[in-house]
Design a protein around this nucleic acid. Structure first.
Lengths: 110, 110
DNA sequence: AGCACATACCAAGACAGTCTTGGTATGAGA
DNA sequence: TCTCATACCAAGACTGTCTTGGTATGTGCT
């Protein structure tokens, strides 16, 4: 169910992935994980033990806020929404990720 | 001299960057750091406190080996060299990085 | 009826890897 | 003399992901 090989690459990008996922509208945690894994064809796996701590962290930092509601299937779910600060943070993180990954690509292309 | 903002993105990619740097021939630690920072135009900064532990780790894992020699400037320097196992590891890490970063890009392109 | 599986959340501690800070030592150049 | 670049190293802090375990409900298959 989980990757045998721990994905160290995720470090530092999970926040941006979550923020980006929320940029198109509120979603609950489980749906965020599904969206990221679906979009990346499981190239990026989101373990629940990483997801929820990340959500709490970002809520503490006011990048997102949450309220209880119901999922599409009518279940109890906590819906997360991007705050203005979160949108700013998202832009910054995407920019620094592009810069970083371009750098890495350049080294690999050596 | 060092980044004010801790670069969490480096997590998991430093090994691959070092291995790739050594793929073109032996180099000493300081030169590895210079090469990566130069190649990435400082988009990827290699702190010495990250570099040397990474080198010891990879030496322990037999991905690289080391011997004392002299640098281009005639100073005492420990020269690291890629082992066959290291070359295999490099290929695997580059492949998984490409897969991962393609996934992240896909999410960001949403 | 029984059972597996998907949905949805959460907590606690393990763990890995980078960063901070401090140190050693030499040589070049102002 | 003093600073900066070169070159290495150690110890502990810190951050963030993973592992493992748990709660609870609904659906579908046999």
């Amino acid at each position: 169910m989980s990757p045998r090989t721990t994905n160290a690459l995720l470090h530092g990008t999970l926040d941006a992935l979550i923020l980006k996922t929320l940029a198109s509208g509120p979603r609950h945690g489980y749906a965020i994980a599904r969206f990221i894994e679906d979009t990346t064809a499981d190239a990026v796996l989101v373990e629940e033990g990483s997801l929820y701590p990340a959500l709490y962290r970002m809520e503490r930092r006011r990048w997102i806020d949450a309220e209880w509601g119901t999922s599409e299937l009518g279940r109890r779910a906590k819906l997360y929404r991007l705050t203005p600060a979160g949108r700013t943070q998202l832009a910054a993180e995407v920019a620094s990720w592009r810069r970083f990954s371009a750098g890495v690509s350049r080294v690999f292309a050596t």
